[in-house]
C-alpha cells in the first residue's frame, strides 16, 4: 500500500516537473537578463544571488535593480515593488479556500512558490486539493524556482558579456506559454468576455503607462466574466420558470 502511494507521488512529481518545463525554458532570457543586469548595475555576487533566491519575482527584480542602482529612495523602491507584486494578492485570494487550512509548511512553501507560472498551472477547480495534487504543485513550483535560480546564476556569471536578450524578441516565449495555458480553457461566454476585457484594458493602461494597470485590467475583466455568468444563470432560471408555467 505504502509502495503504491509512493509510486503515485513519484508520478505526480514527474508530471508537475514536465508540465512546468516549457515555462522553465520560456523564462531563460528573463532569468539571464535579471542576473546579468544586477552585476552590470554594481550588485555584489551575494546580492545578485539573493535577488532570485529570496525576492524571486522577475518583474520586481528587473525594475528594482535599476532603481537601486540609481539611488532612488528606499520608500519609493519598496512601494514600486509592492505595486508590481499586487497581482499576487489575487492569486492568494483565489487559492485561499483550498490552502488556508493546510499545515504551515504547505502554506508557506506553496505561498513562497506562488508565481504567475505556478498559478497558471493551478487554475483547475480541483488543483491543489488533496495531497497528490499538492505534491504536483510543489514539484511544479519547486522546479520553476530552481530553474529561475539557475538562469539568474548564468546571468551573474556571464555578467556584462551578454547583450540585452529581450531586444532580440525572446519575451515572445513567455507570452506564448500563457496563450497555450489559457486559450484551451476559454470554452464558454463568461471566460471569453473575461479575456477580451483583460486584453483591451491591459493594452490601454499600458499605453497610458499606468503602473497598476495590470491589476485593474484584471479586476475589470473578472467583474465582466462574473457578471456574464450571473446573467446566464438568471436567464436560465427565468426560462425554466416560463416552461413550468406553460
Amino acid at each position: 500500500m505504502v509502495q503504491v502511494k509512493k509510486n503515485i507521488y513519484w508520478k505526480v512529481a514527474q508530471k508537475g516537473f514536465l508540465d512546468m518545463l516549457p515555462l522553465n525554458l520560456a523564462v531563460i532570457p528573463w532569468g539571464i537578463l535579471c542576473g546579468s543586469l544586477a552585476i552590470q548595475r554594481g550588485f555584489s555576487v551575494l546580492e545578485a544571488l539573493l535577488m532570485p533566491a529570496l525576492v524571486y519575482a522577475g518583474a520586481v527584480q528587473l525594475v528594482v535593480t535599476e532603481l537601486i542602482a540609481n539611488n532612488v529612495p528606499l520608500a519609493t523602491i519598496l512601494f514600486t515593488a509592492f505595486i508590481i507584486s499586487s497581482r499576487h494578492f489575487l492569486y492568494g485570494l483565489a487559492l485561499r479556500n483550498k490552502l488556508k487550512n493546510l499545515p504551515l509548511r504547505w502554506r508557506v512553501s506553496l505561498g513562497f512558490l506562488l508565481t504567475d507560472e505556478l498559478f497558471a498551472l493551478s487554475t483547475h477547480r480541483k488543483s491543489l486539493k488533496g495531497k497528490v495534487r499538492l505534491i504536483y504543485g510543489l514539484f511544479a513550483g519547486g522546479s520553476f524556482y530552481l530553474s529561475w535560480l539557475m538562469w539568474n546564476i548564468i546571468g551573474i556569471i556571464a555578467g556584462s558579456y551578454l547583450p540585452d536578450l529581450t531586444e532580440i524578441g525572446l519575451d515572445f516565449a513567455i507570452a506564448v506559454t500563457f496563450i497555450a495555458l489559457i486559450m484551451p480553457n476559454i470554452t464558454n461566454l463568461p471566460a471569453l468576455v473575461t479575456i477580451i476585457i483583460a486584453g483591451v484594458f491591459s493594452v490601454i493602461f499600458k499605453l497610458l503607462d499606468w503602473e497598476l494597470g495590470l491589476v485593474f485590467a484584471a479586476l475589470l475583466a473578472m467583474y465582466g466574466g462574473y457578471t456574464t455568468s450571473r446573467w446566464q444563470t438568471r436567464k436560465a432560471i427565468k426560462s425554466e420558470i416560463k416552461e413550468e408555467k406553460e
Partner: peptide, 22 residues
C-alpha cells in the same frame, strides 16, 4: 469565489496581450 474563479484568465491575459500588441 465565483468572481475569483476568473482571476487566472484575467491576470494572465493582461500579462501576455501587451507583450504582443505594444
Amino acid at each position: 469565489s465565483s468572481f475569483l474563479s476568473f482571476s487566472a484568465p484575467a491576470v494572465l491575459t493582461a500579462i501576455w496581450v501587451p507583450i504582443i500588441f505594444i
